[in-house]
Design a protein around this nucleic acid. Structure first.
Length: 557
RNA sequence: GGCCCGUUGGUCAAGCGGUUAAGACACCGCCCUUUCACGGCGGUAUCAGCAGUUCGAUUCUGCUACGGGUCACCA
């Protein structure tokens, strides 16, 4: 078989040579040790939590080493492409502050532009490149055209991929398919010509010469030393539409774009033999690999499963909707990435996460379960460290989109809103009431008339006359100019007057001697002023509310 | 089913041949506190199992079990 002639037959329009292509992508001029990484999502409309996890690693590794991080859009599957997906992707990355140096970006006008010298950065625009390398492989007898259609192969397999395949059928189905593919390797030049004359669709398959019984050693930077079998599968390089499969695009792109470190999910591990073979066939130097652990969830049956896009929390946009601040998700992500991040952050509170010495060795090698309780705890801590102004701005942003009515209320009186956010904030032991922006309204809505409702239930176990009398007495002596201790002394006086203990120790020593205690009196007032039993410091609440509103609410109880 | 990867408390995890096996979350007590939210102190709970190497294995090796991933003209 004249492979050179075959390659000309298959790619008559490809005139560029591999050398010419290589010349277009010179080595990058980077300092010693600089890493070149890439985030290469397919534009499916959202960024997966696991994808963000990888993007963060990409970004940190590149920028921590003085290297380059680029974004490549893997749009080789036209069927799955969703319009606006690239924009959504870019926005998510920028929301989370994951900055990349090359790839598709948005300019000032919001238009998509390409930045960088190693593009195009969309695989659909790189067809020419792939074809040159495919032609080379065919010319060298390392790849061949296969005219067997996907439908025919599926038929041969006799098993519906969608249906549940019984374990025992696996072997035979795989064998049959393999036999069919092997048969596809047998052809004459005349047959190929006939197919082409007939415009029969075909794919380009690799000619696999591996023996799966033979294992080769491979070192992954996360997983460590692995043993991988040789590849014996004639997998597809170019689909019948001329677009490459992931495998082929990965080899060609990461070679030309000079990627030094490939960060991807461990679900790619099984296809490693394919990639090793491809890089060998093409004469490319393999990049280093980091196969990251999977993020798992517990399913209905209590088994661990890969976090799928249907699960809440799988899409980065879910967090926005649930009201998690990006900073919180970031910090949670970082703690999953390097478990010592939390500790480091506690000791370096003033430093940016960019100063954190991210370490590959610290990355988990086994999958971890997604833990909302932990996320919530991290979130509370992060939010508690923010200033009242920050909280105001960020929560308003969120409310503008998800709760416009409440946003309007907040905006109507920014000073008051900020004063509320300032309660118990800034000290060594800040309040931690807020976990998500969604918590803001339930937490402080009562300050605003539209959201103020009174729950009298806690008052029911007391004599209504006492409640009424306590309120009346409070109003008699209430002076908004009072210092906190004076203010509280007055409440204690009310307690004494009504037969409630003003001294908690005395009360605890002999509870039966009193109708209640000063905490109960405070509770009456708290119900009146905040409408509920639990609230931030009552003295401050009254100050922010102002004398008029405070009196009005107590009078109305 | 084949192949690959993994397994330290309920969860995330330190550990890298000799430790009372860190810490965080969750949970449970107690304390502080006019409520709540904090904060402090304490507690329950972990090396999947079995062999082997070794003076000594959570750490090294093998096997078993269990869990996960993957087996497309999807990425």
């Amino acid at each position: 078989m004249d492979y050179k002639a075959l390659s000309e037959l298959l790619f008559p329009n490809v005139t560029a040579t591999v050398e010419e292509i290589e010349a277009r992508y010179p080595a990058r001029d980077l300092p010693e040790g600089a890493k070149v990484t890439r985030f290469a999502p397919s534009p499916t409309g959202f960024v997966h939590f696991g994808g963000m996890y990888q993007a963060v690693v990409d970004e940190r590794l590149a920028h921590q080493s003085g290297g380059v991080f680029f974004l490549r859009i893997e749009d080789t599957d036209g069927q799955r492409e969703i319009k606006g997906a690239v924009e959504a992707l870019i926005h998510t990355l920028s929301d989370y502050g994951v900055s990349y140096d090359e790839g598709i970006k948005e300019d000032e006008n919001g238009d998509l532009v390409e930045v960088g010298d190693y593009g195009p950065y969309k695989q659909s625009q790189r067809a020419e490149l792939y074809h040159v390398f495919a032609k080379k492989l065919v010319a060298e007898g390392k790849a061949y055209p296969c005219f067997t259609t996907a439908e025919e192969l599926e038929e041969i397999q006799e098993t519906d991929k969608k249906a549940e395949i019984k374990n025992t059928d696996w072997h035979t189905a795989a064998e049959q398919k393999r036999a069919a593919m092997l048969a596809g390797r047998q052809f004459t030049m005349e047959e190929v010509k006939a197919h082409l004359a007939n415009s029969d669709p075909f794919v380009i398959r690799i000619l696999a010469n591996g023996d799966p019984e033979k294992k080769t050693k491979f070192t992954d930077m996360v997983k460590g030393n692995l043993e991988v079998p040789e590849n014996d599968e004639d997998f597809v390089l170019l689909k019948s539409d001329g677009i490459p499969t992931y495998h082929f695009a990965h080899a060609v792109d990461d070679h030309l774009m000079k990627t030094t470190h490939v960060i991807r999910g461990e679900d790619w591990l099984p296809s490693l033999p394919k990639h090793i073979m491809l890089f060998n066939y093409l004469g490319f130097k393999m990049p280093k690999y980091l196969h990251t652990a999977q993020i798992l969830k517990t399913d209905e049956n209590g088994n661990k499963k890969k976090l799928s896009k249907r699960d809440m929390g799988a899409k980065m946009d879910d967090y926005r909707q649930m009201g998690y601040a990006t900073e919180c998700v970031w910090e949670y992500l970082l703690t999953l990435l390097n478990s010592n991040f939390e500790e480091w952050h506690a000791q370096n509170a003033d430093k940016s996460y960019l100063d954190f010495p991210f370490n590959i060795k610290k990355m988990a090698t086994s999958g971890c379960l997604y833990d909302y309780a932990k996320l919530n705890d991290v979130s509370k801590n992060v939010l508690s460290r923010m200033t009242a102004d920050e909280i105001y701005e960020k929560s308003l942003d969120w409310a503008n989109e998800f709760d416009p009515d409440f946003a309007a209320v907040m905006k109507a009186d920014p000073e008051k809103t900020k004063a509320i956010f300032a309660i118990g904030r800034g000290g060594k032991k800040p309040r931690k009431d807020l976990c998500t922006w969604n918590d803001v309204k339930p937490y402080m809505g009562f300050f605003f008339a539209p959201y103020f409702t009174v729950d009298r239930t806690p008052l029911e176990r007391f004599d209504p006359a006492d409640v009424k009398s306590a309120c009346a007495k409070f109003l008699e002596t209430y002076d908004p100019a009072d210092e906190m201790n004076v203010w509280f002394d007055k409440i204690k006086a009310i307690a004494d007057a009504l037969g409630y203990a003003s001294d908690m120790k005395a009360y605890k020593a002999n509870p039966d001697a009193y109708k209640g205690n000063v905490a109960d009196i405070s509770m009456f007032l708290r119900i009146a002023v905040t409408g509920r039993e639990n609230a931030p410091d009552l003295f401050t609440v009254m100050q922010i509310l102002g004398e008029e509103e405070t009196r009005k609410r107590i009078l109305a109880l």
